[in-house]
Amino acid sequence: MFRSLTGYFSNDLAIDLGTANTLIYMRGKGIVLDEPSVVAIHHDSPTNKKSILAVGIEAKKMLGRTPGSIQAIRPMKDGVIADFTVTEQMLKQFIKKVSPSRFFTASPSIVICVPCGSTQVERRAIKDSALAAGARRVELIEEPMAAAIGAGLPVEEPTGSMVVDIGGGTTEVGVISLGGVVYSNSVRVGGDKFDEAIINYIRRNYGMLIGETTAEEIKKTIGSAFPGAEVREMEVKGRNLAEGIPRSFTVSSNEILEALTEPLNQIVSAVKIALEQTPPELGADIADKGMVLTGGGALLKDIDRLLAEETGLPVFVAEGPLTCVVRGSGKALDKLGKIGTIFTNVP
């Protein structure tokens, strides 16, 4: 009874703790935070004390531009916590940011997404981080499930739905029926791997070094996953490795397509494996309905076309792919405390 009473005063949250971005959804308010998962830490050398300097957007601006005493780090790597204490601090800061400053606030219930490929240890770490950040209760939800709910798929019906969530660090493929995940698979390929592939391609073929931010811009501007009719070009500035001097050069969309082939193939094979492993009845449903793409990676041009051609199934991108997971988790908040299989258990 007391729990339900405090529930009225707390603002229950759903958190998509992503490799690239952290999104927070507040019950009744919608998405209240969307910031990069970056923390800037200040080292005080005489006392050897560490303190948080900035989180989110401010900290991202510092990435790669910090003096020795400041460290800007991304505590999440490949969809899991790489640095436990920093993640905890980041969560704390974000939760504080979105919680209205009131005289009397109860700690919130939190739903957090985890990649389906994460181990029990990694899940435990995420759960403990959230509890340490002041949560009253923490439930974990697998990302494909959250993405499917967010995309508006009929997850609770006895029909198979397939969702492919291409995030910053991981790509999650899930087949969902009757409110449960029938099959799920996670490959550690995502937006970051696309950027990396572009950097490597340009270094190899142009002898130029570009940064992650530039690579991301190239991907967003001319990147595509399927050869299109028109070839687009973009002027890029980087450091010539041989001369050591910044130079400008032009890359075309076909070159970027070539650069992205390898990570895209990994996603395609993950999808194909998922289809192979899906029970035939659900496979028939998927053949009829196709698969839904969510996550930032779904914004890559023609990635739906690539998957459609490779699998021969209808593929479409969900509306608001970037926020699908957090919106789905937010909707799952209402299911808290009810019997259901949409949440995953941590022993």
Binding site: G30, G320, D334, K335
Partner: peptide
């Protein structure tokens, strides 16, 4: 659109207008 509301998944969606009368009543 799934962006606006999801009738089969409860009331607390990001459509603030939907939930506006509900929350104060509960409060």
């Amino acid at each position: 659109s799934s962006l606006s509301s999801e009738p089969d998944l409860g009331t607390a969606t990001d459509a603030a207008t939907d939930t506006a009368p509900v929350v104060p009543a509960r409060r």
